[in-house]
Amino acid sequence: MTQQNHGNAHKFGMVIDLDKCTGCGSCMVACMSENNVPFKEDESNKKDSITWMRVYKLTNGKSFPDTDVCYLPRPCMHCGGKGDHGHSPCVSVCPATATDYDYGTGIVSQIYTRCFGCRYCMGACPYHARFFNWWDPKWPEGMEEYLSPDVSPRMRGVVEKCSFCFHRYQAAKDKAYLEERDTVAEEEYQTACTQACPSGAITFGDLNNPDHAVHQLVNPDPHHCGRPRNPKAFRLLERLETNPKVYYISEREWVRKAGDNYLDGEWEKAKMKKTKGHE
């Protein structure tokens, strides 16, 4: 399967323009609403709050009035893993194959009915993109009426995470099959967060398709597992070789630097190298 599908495989990914993001939280709520994410009375313990899409607030660490703030939305990165072979940090550790890497789409699945709740995948994920259902999901009386049938509600004791709204791909494919088309158009498959973002900061599409906006925005380097060639783009924790499919763009240097860990002086060196490389 792996080999077979590599030729015409899609690689769905996301590009988030951090200069456009205002931290408004639409993406978070669009995601919760689209994916039947439950909520509890108290959600202020963020270490125990299911937010497939979470917006982090980053500060540049400088004091008044040189302070700067940037919001960074963090969905599941759908890592390709080392060498982009599909051994994502989480997929490779799941003992029961409850999460797998789809070589046809590059999407990391999570199957709630297979998961038995060992939470090893959560420990493996450096992005904290995975959430455990510590509680039975519960909606106030009558509110379960708004639940969508496209995403199955999770039961207590299993892990869940962002699926790049895979059900929307399923629906788009359904339509394509009926219309006897082979492909799904770029606009036919968009995630709920992309669609909702009032700033248009999120772009979603096939990174392998040069016609798609995501490809054009970051210009992924196929020889380096999709590393962005756009100097303003970066991926979170690039150095861990998790090879995420979520890219960020920012004009602000401190933001790009915050995307990874650097020893003292390393960033400056890396920057020099990068500029040289682009000359």
């Binding site: 797998d100 890497y101 999407i107 496209d150 699926s163 895979f166």
Partner: peptide, 12 residues
């Protein structure tokens, strides 16, 4: 198809 398919092919 030569493969059982990825999980998300049939799960939601």
């Amino acid at each position: 198809t030569g493969s059982k398919g990825a999980c998300f092919q049939c799960h939601k």
